[in-house]
Design a protein around this nucleic acid. Structure first.
Length: 795
DNA sequence: GGGTTGCCCGTTTTT
DNA sequence: CGGGCAACCC
């Protein structure tokens, strides 16, 4: 009976009476039953529909539940129609998940909600108003490889030394500008870089022009161009502002400036914006994300309500305690402590911290443990090995294979990033649009057709003279007869495939095209071991393609969605990076490779210092909070890297774990005779106060921040692992002090707590806390004083 | 135009 | 160690 009250269409002007109607409706509609599933905080987050709301949602506290229920609630309460709600996520996975959960709550209405990734929403808006930003609505979205190729061309034309200044580096800079919402003309000296003698901005301009002439955009443009559109066309902005009565944002801690600006613009009229996020899980700053967005929410939206979700439904007390203790070392947090949802919950096992002599033993131990867990009935798919860097997965792959454990590596190469898939897509792009020069360049000589730099030069010259595409230039350029012949037949193949589009299914067109062009044959003749796999991938592509109406939408899908749906059918163990693990959970988690230099990663420390260190710590926190019942953290003293043995010390994060929640276990060292032997727990847990472990004999000193180290800081570029300290065989644990690669860590000057210092009048002491340049020193006399760093010298 | 050699470099990566 | 790439030679 409430159906008679229909809300206004968005195009009509705002009518003050609507509010009265809304009020009335609200009071007359009973609370939906799905509200009962929520705890009090979640319920508040759902029911506080009006005004800005920030939901600080810790790991495992039910944020997706809050988001979906909130959408359902708004619709149920008839506060808005489904299409008046905008809900944005970061990943396709998250938006898919939300969509299906929403459907379970409210049925088909779920599909009318504007629910998708930022980029998908951006593309939707851009397609509609493409001509306002110098595009036509069938523009294509370029991937990284195309972007780099474009930039490389531009740079080479300008005579830049590609070795010194890489296209990838330039792309990075341009992307960061786009992340900030800056068009070329908006880049000011404040954003300038020294890259390429300050010519980065010039290339940015060129690049944008090139994109426009190709009728193409990149990922950054999917946010930047809508933003520009809104700025230059207030009427269009007003339309969307009017439409989106309620806005919901997932993973708010990972939004960049462009996304922030978009949200702020869109929310301006109704001011009903609900952002869900966790500042402690912000791990993408290197990709332009700004934690500040979430930290300053209250400033952006002054009347914001902040709701904390701290009841964790995932992990045991020990896991939560250890993770909380670790993250407490970060400064500038909004502050939040995870509590187990069930108070009576038993503590579970302590977090196990294990040290190994080398990486192989570490991997061996983890895999063996996994096997024994499996025997006890734990599914492989309930366990995960998480690592910092992708190269670490290789070792696990090897060991898992040897043990015959079924596994899956996530991260690394995505389906649509594989060479053969990108080639196949380039062929498809070319038949859809022969003006797609980038696609043309990619495959014109794949398979080899004898098209070398010379022929390409001829084509490019014709292109410039006649203002036509490379493909069309074939008919005009002066080419050697042999080249002419092969190119003419190439043109014919493409044109034939184009005609087939009318009659055949997308998959059949692709099959014919790739067969007739000789592309398939190229891999068939290839006798390298991976050729068969590539052919298989192409067959997989046909399968995916058969789900699409037309090739156009398939291409859009591939450019927006990175991977194919993983077949989750088998019981497989996953090995993946910490980054990739965000949002997932497992019964048992192994966090491997917690060593200084690797985790926290040296490059991060070198480049972004303490800020980077905190992000690494958040990454550790993300990893730890993936575990439901069991968590093992491990490190190895020696690790094979770049074909050499590298030695390192346990990660500082290990020391930061609160003792009461962890159990340190057997540590291996090399026995004098043969093989490796376990020794009794040398890896004590009693050194959290001072940095000196108490029970360890000579090697203890390696935990000290060395003193003479810092003197080197200025002369020597600090590389990740000190190459001079490399040895070709695994070094013993009792490493001569000079060889310890830890020195590079200390010299990064990223952290001073724990160091021994000397003050002119107060004498020697230890740094116990640091706050920028102000250090708290506990002097040997017992007194603690705040001293500026410049008055201290390293002892 | 195409194959080979030698040099450099080595995080994380939705969209 | 191993992939990618540019310079180099056939």
């Amino acid at each position: 009976m409430n159906d008679i009250f229909k809300l206004d269409e968005p195009e009509t002007d705002f009518n003050p009476l609507d509010e009265a109607v809304d009020e009335f409706l609200k009071s007359s509609i009973p609370e939906p039953s799905f509200i009962d599933d929520l705890n009090p905080e979640q319920r508040q987050a759902v029911e506080t529909t009006e005004g800005p709301v920030l939901v600080l949602s810790g790991a495992g506290t039910g944020k997706t539940k809050v988001l979906t229920t909130r959408v359902a609630y708004i619709i149920h309460q008839k506060k808005a129609l489904p299409w008046q709600i905008l809900a944005v996520t970061f990943t396709n996975k998250a938006s898919k998940e939300m969509k299906s959960r929403l459907e379970r709550l409210i049925g088909a209405d779920a599909f009318s909600v504007w629910l998708g990734t930022f980029h998908a929403i951006g593309i939707k808006i851009l397609r509609k108003f493409a001509e306002k930003v110098n595009l036509t609505s069938n523009f294509i979205v370029l991937g990284t490889d195309d972007q780099e190729r474009l930039l490389k061309n531009l740079m080479q034309e300008a005579g830049v030394d590609i070795k010194k200044y890489t296209p990838a580096g330039l792309l990075e800079i341009i992307q960061r500008w786009k992340d900030k919402g800056l068009l070329p003309e908006q880049v000011t000296s404040a954003h300038q870089t020294t890259f390429c003698n300050g010519r980065a901005l010039y290339f940015y301009k060129q690049y944008q022009q090139k994109l426009s002439s190709l009728n193409a955009v990149d990922f950054g443009d999917l946010l930047l161009l809508p933003l520009a559109l809104f700025q230059s066309h207030p009427d269009i902005l007003a339309h969307y502002q009017q439409q989106f009565k309620y806005i919901l944002v997932d993973e708010y801690q990972d939004t960049n400036v462009a996304q922030y600006l978009l949200l702020r613009l869109l929310a301006k009229k109704y001011n009903n914006i609900c952002c869900v996020g966790d500042d402690d899980q912000s791990i993408y700053s290197w990709r332009g994300a700004k934690v500040e967005n979430i930290l300053n929410f209250k400033t952006t939206f002054p009347d914001a309500v902040i709701i904390r979700l701290e009841r964790n439904y995932r992990s045991t007390r020990h896991i939560l305690g250890a993770a909380s203790g670790l993250i407490a070392n970060n400064s500038g947090r909004l502050g939040k402590t995870l509590k187990p949802a069930n108070e009576k919950e038993n503590q579970g096992e302590h977090v196990l911290v294990k040290g190994f002599y080398n990486g192989n033993q570490e991997a061996e131990y983890i895999v063996e443990t996994i096997e024994s867990e499996q025997k006890k009935g734990v599914l492989l798919s309930d366990m995960a090995i998480l690592v910092r860097a992708t190269f670490q997965t290789r070792l696990f792959e090897e060991v898992l294979m040897r043990h015959g454990v079924s596994y899956k590596i996530i991260g690394g190469f995505k389906f649509y990033e594989r060479e053969e898939i990108k080639d196949a897509i380039a062929y498809l792009r070319l038949i859809l649009n022969t003006d797609d020069d980038l696609a043309f360049m990619r495959i014109v000589n794949k398979p080899k057709r004898g098209i070398g730099p010379q022929a390409m030069d001829a084509l490019e010259q014709t292109t410039r003279e006649k203002h036509i595409s490379l493909f069309d230039a074939i008919g005009w350029a002066s080419l050697r007869p042999a080249v002419r012949k092969t190119l003419d037949s190439f043109v014919l193949t493409i044109k034939r495939a184009r005609e087939l589009l009318q009659t055949e299914s997308p998959a059949d067109v692709a099959k014919t095209l790739l067969e007739e062009s000789g592309y398939i044959q190229m891999w068939r003749l290839d006798k390298s071991p991976e050729a068969e796999g590539r052919l298989e991938n192409i067959r997989e592509l046909y399968t995916v393609l058969s789900d699409f109406e037309d090739i156009q939408s398939f291409i859009e899908y591939t450019s927006l969605v990175m991977d194919t749906d993983e077949n989750v059918t088998d019981d497989q163990l996953v090995v993946m990076t910490l980054h990739a693990s965000k949002g997932l959970e497992f019964y048992e988690v192994f966090l491997a490779g917690w060593e200084e230099g690797l985790f926290p990663h040296q490059k991060t420390l070198d480049e972004t210092g303490d800020v980077g260190l905190e992000e690494e710590r958040r990454l550790a926190y993300v990893g730890m909070t993936r575990a439901k019942r069991k968590l093992t953290i491990s490190f190895a003293h020696n690790r094979r890297m770049y074909g050499q043995w590298i030695n390192a010390l346990p990660s500082r994060f290990i020391e930061e774990l609160p003792q009461q929640h962890i159990q340190t276990d057997t540590y291996f060292h090399r026995s004098e005779q043969q093989g490796y032997q376990a020794s009794t727990p040398a890896w004590g847990c009693g050194y959290s106060g001072s940095r000196k472990p108490k029970r360890y004999g000579t090697h203890v000193q390696s935990f000290d921040f060395d003193d003479d180290v810092d003197t080197q800081q200025d002369e020597r570029p600090v590389s990740r692992w000190d190459r001079e300290s490399l040895t070709s065989t695994p070094s013993d644990y009792f490493i001569p002090r000079k060889q310890i690669s830890y020195r590079t860590v200390a010299s990064s000057s990223s952290r001073r707590v724990g160091r021994r210092v000397r003050h002119e009048t107060f004498g020697a002491g230890t740094v116990v806390r640091e706050d920028g340049e102000r250090l708290d020193i506990r002097f040997d006399s017992g007194q603690i004083k705040k001293i500026m760093a410049r008055f201290l010298e390293e002892e």
